[in-house]
Write a protein that binds this DNA or RNA. Structure first.
Length: 587
RNA sequence: GCUCUCGUAGUUCAAUGGAUAGAACAGAAGGUUUCUAACCUUCUAAUGUAGGUUCGAUUCCUACCGGGAGCACCA
């Protein structure tokens, strides 16, 4: 449609002997101002030395002369020189027909056809709680993965875990201090929660160790034992703790709707990265200034990235890759990880990492090192960052008063929804499943409704709120629409997009835009365009629902309204899927 | 100090350089013998400050003010 209108404009301009390179065509913010709009008259008015409004009128006259396509109802000049296009009733009924025929493939595009993309996200560490930041990364990563898939990409999901390091020593210290926490009965979540408590215990002991550094010393000792696997008892605890916390994460992924294809462990990436760093130590790379990548400095191996700073690009700084103790740092592991990803997937076109924005600066340094070592990779790496979950002061803690973890938040959301569902007639199993899906929707939506870059002020009450601008609102609209369709089946009213009524419903003016929205989300790696769009569509549908009786035998347009309702459910279902949100048929 | 980010209704968020800055929550007023009221309808209310570029700026540039993050052996 967009191209059709552009060609029409181009033709009209040609008749007026005006040449243009590019025509911008957009949707006016207000539906009352038409379905498409162009600013072309204003843009070229200066060059042609004509009043923009008069020019716009000439163009419109020309377009009208060209015989309007039957898809366009009318064209008019508005404001200071905009040309607005109003699409015809027929266009909208055809778009409803298209959606009904395509079902859930409506909205797909092929800009990334056959591209192989790996996306790494979530990255919780074994022995530590899955906190709300992981929830945030997971929601964003999963949604982007699905959006890219909808654009034709072959996506693999990767998770990267810190399976060695001080955090584990702290947890094991805690477990040794309080053996009750080593309870091996109960669910994975229960055991993992105990390990989380042990971690908090060990962490506190490590940091507040004023009495002669006993705890600190002991934890450092445990750390070495973990590294060398030299202590049988610690090995046993480690094996159990690793397994049970990783399994607890899996249980959460299942609830969240994520399935990873690759797991990378820090301990395995370390030697890979270390070899790369040591092999390139003091090596002069081929560059006009004969600069080195890795060099020694105060016994450590560092990368003085600031040497590569360029005007107009983010400033880089020095990072330590191998400590003076000879141990690889996070940067080296990340370097190893990057190379390992490309090695595992030689055909990979793009490697995406999703993390919090605090990691932005050193990831840039790592990326620079990678691209100096392997220039091919430079354009194939993308780091997507998101803000922090900030808590409004005085509102800490979950409903049960504990610290908020990802799991407690999801549980609280689910319980809150269960309370709301008392009047509905469901089996226990159904009820649990629906409450879980709606709870996940509430949390995910509150993360995905805003642009990924910024912080999110995390308000528990609001995040599980079901009103207005929320995930459950979207699901509710979907469930309602389904209910209408059930009724239509019973009444034997079949959908028919051809018998349309004269009036055009607002929801129709939104549904056909879905593919454009998906495309934009894919290009910008931004799920929130879809979230905002779905709210608009849901609102329009709820309004339609409120003002029309859809299933009504006597109404000739009933079968059209049923078709429109089907179209709405398909778009909503697909859109929510792209956000990583389930669509219960009933709620 | 340097770098990166962000400043929009009372609050939490939108707005590919365009028209009357859009929602939600909170507040005010209505709506249920009809398909799920987790809903609908109506009202009140905002671009940090000062310049610049432009026909036109919330958006781009500069300075300032204010919040957040990062800046050598933690991840």
């Amino acid at each position: 449609m967009q191209e059709e209108i552009k060609n029409l404009i181009r033709e009209a301009l040609k008749n007026l002997s005006i040449e243009v390179e590019d025509i911008t065509l957009e949707h006016p913010a207000d539906l009352a101002r038409g379905d498409y709009s162009t600013n072309i008259a204003m843009a070229i008015a200066k060059n042609v030395k004509e009043n923009p409004k008069k020019l716009a009128e000439k163009i419109v006259a020309e377009i009208s002369r060209l015989n309007l396509e039957k898809n366009i109802e009318k064209v008019e000049v508005a404001g200071v020189g905009f040309i607005n296009f109003y699409l015809s009733r027929k266009f909208f009924s055809k778009s409803v027909e298209e959606i009904v025929n395509k079902v859930e493939s409506f909205g797909k595009n092929d800009v990334l056809a056959d591209k192989k993309i790996m996306i790494e996200y979530t990255d919780p560490n074994p022995f530590k709680p899955f906190h709300i930041g992981h929830l945030m990364t997971n929601a964003i990563g999963e949604s982007i993965a699905r959006i890219l898939e909808h654009s034709g990409a072959v996506v693999s999901r990767a998770n990267y875990q810190g399976d060695v390091g001080l955090h584990i020593a702290r947890a094991i210290y805690g477990l040794l201090q309080n053996e009750k926490l080593q309870d091996k009965k109960g669910s994975n979540a229960f055991q993992a929660a105990n390990i989380g408590r042990a971690y908090a215990l060990g962490s506190g002991a490590y940091e507040n160790d004023v009495g002669g550094f006993l705890a600190k010393k002991e934890i450092d000792e445990i750390n070495k034992k973990i590294y060398h696997k030299s202590d049988k008892k610690i090995n046993e605890i480690y094996d159990w703790g690793f397994k049970v916390t990783m399994q607890a994460f899996e249980d959460l992924y299942k609830i969240l709707g994520t399935k990873f294809d690759f797991y990378f462990l820090e301990s395995q990436m370390a030697p890979i990265g270390e070899r790369i760093v040591r092999d390139n130590l003091d090596k002069i790379i081929d560059s006009p200034h004969s600069k080195m990548i890795f060099e020694k400095s105060d016994d450590a191996i560092v990368f003085k990235a600031e040497k590569y700073n360029k005007e107009g690009q983010p400033k880089l700084h020095t990072r330590v890759f191998i400590t003076s103790q000879g141990l690889p740092t996070y940067e080296t592991k990340e370097l190893g990880l990057t190379f390992e990803k490309f090695k595992t997937n030689p055909e990979m076109n793009l490697s995406i990492i999703v993390t919090a924005s605090e990691q932005m600066d050193y990831m840039r340094v790592v990326a620079k090192a990678v691209s100096l070592l392997h220039p091919d990779f430079e354009s194939k790496m993308k780091h997507i960052t998101h803000g922090m979950m900030r808590l409004p002061s005085g509102k800490m803690g979950s409903r049960k008063g504990n610290a908020i973890t990802g799991e407690s938040l999801l549980n609280d959301a689910r319980d809150f929804i269960l309370e709301k569902m008392t009047d509905r007639d469901f089996s226990n199993e159904e009820r649990e499943k629906i409450a879980s899906d709606v709870g996940v929707a509430a949390v995910k939506y509150s993360i995905l409704k805003q642009a990924t870059g910024g912080d999110i002020v995390y308000d528990f009450e609001k995040s599980i709120s079901l009103d207005g601008d929320s995930g459950p609102y979207l699901q509710y609209s979907f469930a309602r629409a389904n209910s209408v369709l059930e009724k239509a089946k019973i009444a034997e009213i079949l959908p028919d997009p051809h018998v349309f009524p004269p009036e055009i419903f607002e929801v129709e003016k939104l549904l056909y835009k879905f593919p454009e929205i998906v495309l934009r989300s894919a290009k910008e790696y931004e799920p929130h365009y879809i979230a905002n769009y779905l709210i608009e569509v849901a609102r329009a549908f709820n309004s339609f629902y409120g003002n029309n009786l859809i299933v009504k035998k006597e109404d000739k347009a009933s079968s059209y309204k049923v078709a429109l309702t089907y179209a709405f459910t398909f778009v909503m279902k697909t859109g929510l899927h792209l956000l990583g949100i389930e669509t219960p048929e009933k709620m």
